[in-house]
Each structure stands twice: as C-alpha cells, then as structure tokens.
C-alpha cells in the first residue's frame, strides 16, 4: 500500500459526498452508502493516487479557512470587475496571453491553482505545461514572467504550499 494516505483521503471525500447528498443518518441509508463506498473503492482504487498531494498536518486547520476567505474575496472582486467592464459602453479591455511559473509539483495542486486563477479578477488559465501556466489576462499589466507571476499567482501559491505538496 504505497499510496495509503491518498486512498484514505479519497474514501473520506466519497463518504462525505454521500452523507451530504442523503442528509440522513438512517441505518438503511448508511448500509447502502457503505456498500456503494466499498464498490467505488475497488473500482477506482488506481485513481486515488491523485489525492496523495493533500497534506495532513495541524497547520491545515488554520490554512483551509484562510484559503477559502482569500478565494471568496478575490471571486467577489473578480465579479464586480467583470460586471463594470461589461456594462461600460466603451468596453475597456487590454487583453493578452502571458506565462506564469509555479513551484507546485503535483497534478492536484496545479489543478487547484489553475481553477483559482480562472475565478480571480481578469485572468483565465488557457494551458498548463509542466511548471508553466499560460494565462489569458483581460488587462495586461506586466509582460514578462516575473511581474505576471507576482501579480497573478503568488497570493494563492503562498497559502497552497501549506495545504498541498
């Protein structure tokens, strides 16, 4: 069992989804959910490798809510920004595609980072190649890699490093 931790995280995610969907603690529901969980665990064991990146340390109690708060604030800012651009008759855009470097290695961490970038102000992940993310920016402020990285991804990456590998 070399990726035992990933398997456990996978089981917890599936069990939590079942509990939220049914919303009850009936004996029958739990029984059906348990047998479905075993079946899913057997069928999808080889994909559970993905969850290996999740870190389980005492620090995450603090960093998960922090990430959620930062993400929600950025999402709100993004929406007000987009809404103002859309209703403005002049349509003030200054778009382009820039490259951003990331130090995160695992596929799951890169997925979380790319999703967060997509939902934050004026940026949209176009492609991911190894450690480079190509990002469509609606209002380009810096054309080279360093300034783009600083403006777009550094805010999330600092917190993400504490949560995942």
């Amino acid at each position: 069992m070399k990726n035992f931790k990933g398997f456990i995280v996978f089981l917890i995610v599936v069990a939590l989804t079942w509990l939220l969907l049914t919303g009850t603690f009936n004996k029958d529901d739990l029984l059906i959910g348990g047998s479905a969980l075993i079946l899913i665990a057997i069928l999808f064991y080889r994909y559970s490798d993905l969850y290996r990146a999740v870190k389980i340390t005492p620090k995450i109690v603090f960093y998960y809510p922090l990430y959620l708060v930062v993400f929600l604030i950025e999402l709100l800012k993004a929406n007000i920004d987009v809404a103002l651009r859309v209703v403005n008759p002049a349509l003030p855009i200054n778009p382009g595609i820039v490259a951003v470097k990331t130090s995160l290695k695992d596929p799951l961490s890169k997925l979380i980072l790319a999703n967060s970038i997509t939902l934050t102000p004026g940026t949209l992940t176009v492609d991911v190649k190894d450690d480079t993310l190509f990002i469509h920016w609606i209002d380009v402020k810096g054309k080279d890699i360093e300034s783009a990285t600083k403006a777009i991804s550094s805010k999330f990456e600092k917190i993400l490093k504490e949560i995942v590998k």
């Binding site: 999402l75 929406n79 651009r85 349509l91 939902l119 949209l124 469509h136 609606i138």
Partner: peptide
Amino acid sequence: GIFRMPDVYNRLQAGTKATTL
C-alpha cells in the same frame, strides 16, 4: 458579457466568473 465581448477568450472571462458567482 458573452454577447458583447469581442473574442472567445474574453467571452470566457465574462461567462465563467459572472455566471459562477
């Protein structure tokens, strides 16, 4: 925004963020 923006990437920008929130 999807209707007004000039190309597919800018449409995606408007479409994704505003409709998600």
